[in-house]
Design a protein around this nucleic acid. Structure first.
Lengths: 204, 204
DNA sequence: ACTTAATTTAAACAAATGTTTAAAAAATGG
DNA sequence: CCATTTTTTAAACATTTGTTTAAATTAAGT
């Protein structure tokens, strides 16, 4: 069955918002992308900002869903990290605009992150924190706070996708070749982070 | 001596452009920040986009200047990396908006990076590439391409400053405490990267 | 087939924004 | 002190943008 007008608008809005950001695009642009009139956008979604809120929530859900799964699994912590990085690289290969999209929205509306808090609490309840603490106490894992661990993972997963054009400017690497570069980089990231967090073990 | 009107506008524009980005601020906002009329902005700089170009160039120069210095020094490669990270953390502590500012501008105007090419060629001529290649051939440094090295450095230096509010949303860490967190994180980054690039040596 | 509701469109509105104009005010210099 | 240039201001202009309105078209139900 054909997608409804409402769905077409939502899909167009996703595309345009991801690519240009909230402030950098217009309602008419979204309508055009969906192949319809401007007024229809507001007929179905009342306003540009309401439409954006819906798109944003859906993006955040998709993005977090996979993460929560990994944390809720009963894999050992090292595998969790490995899987987390793999999943994030897969996901961002499809939607490389998302990190910037999310960071921009936090800047625009500091409350926008309230939605993810339920999902964060699921992760907290998974017992990862306790697992990390225990391993650190046993000396099997480097003593390093959770904030820094989070930063290491996010930095090395998200930034490479944000910096596509910057790397192109610096190294002249073509955007097509960059896809391979990213997969190559992922392996470095996994090894580097595992080596650092678990200094006593032999890795790849 | 008092700053001239022109300088006041430039300073105001720097502040506003850094904080809100090109599309997200208005000429009137810049004028207000400088304490003057809108028309004066265009009297001195002809247009919003010309003013932005001037501000952007000045930011890029400041940012690159310190990097070029490090590469041009005759320190061994490990010290260069250490110093590079230290400098970048110092610089971004003062201007944490710059990474996003630069990435946004590349997206808006792909030619904007042409200005840094002269400075890049200075770095190329410094002989770092050859130094890395030699060390890798001798097995003193891990075999890893320059693009990935660049990505590791940029990711772990720039992203932590971009993610301030995201980390606040996730971990509840206050923005004031985050300054300390960042300095703490810097040490992890230095060790992690050096450990990975020079696996045969003992580090801190 | 007819009525009613839902969808779509073109047009209009008000507010905001980059830019320009023309006049006022201040500074300069002989 | 006056003439000329430079700086500053208020106002206006044209365009864009989010949103609304009212009419037209289509779909649904009976």
């Amino acid at each position: 069955m054909n997608p409804s007008a409402e769905d077409k608008i939502k899909a167009a809005a996703l595309q345009v918002f991801l690519q240009k950001g909230y402030a950098n695009c217009t309602s008419r642009e979204i309508a055009r992308e969906a192949g319809m009139n401007v007024a229809l956008v507001n007929y179905y979604f009342r306003s540009k900002s309401k439409l954006f809120a819906i798109v944003f929530e859906s993006v955040m859900n998709d993005f977090m869903h996979s993460m929560v799964q990994v944390f809720s699994s009963d894999l050992p912590i090292r595998s969790k990290i490995e899987l987390l990085i793999a999943r994030e690289y897969e996901f961002l290969a499809l939607h490389p605009e998302i990190p910037n999209f999310v960071l921009s929205e936090i800047e625009r509306n500091p409350n926008s992150m309230d939605e993810i808090k339920p999902m964060l609490s699921v992760i907290l309840k998974s017992g990862v924190l306790e697992e990390v603490e225990l391993l650190q106490k046993k000396g099997e894992m480097r003593s390093i706070d959770m904030v820094s661990i989070t930063l290491l993972l996010m930095s090395n997963c998200q930034f490479p996708f944000m910096a596509k054009k910057l790397v192109h400017a610096i190294h002249g690497i073509e955007l097509a070749a960059y896809e391979n570069q990213l997969q190559n980089h992922r392996e470095h990231v996994v090894q580097m982070i595992l080596n650092y967090l678990f200094p006593n073990e032999a890795h790849g």
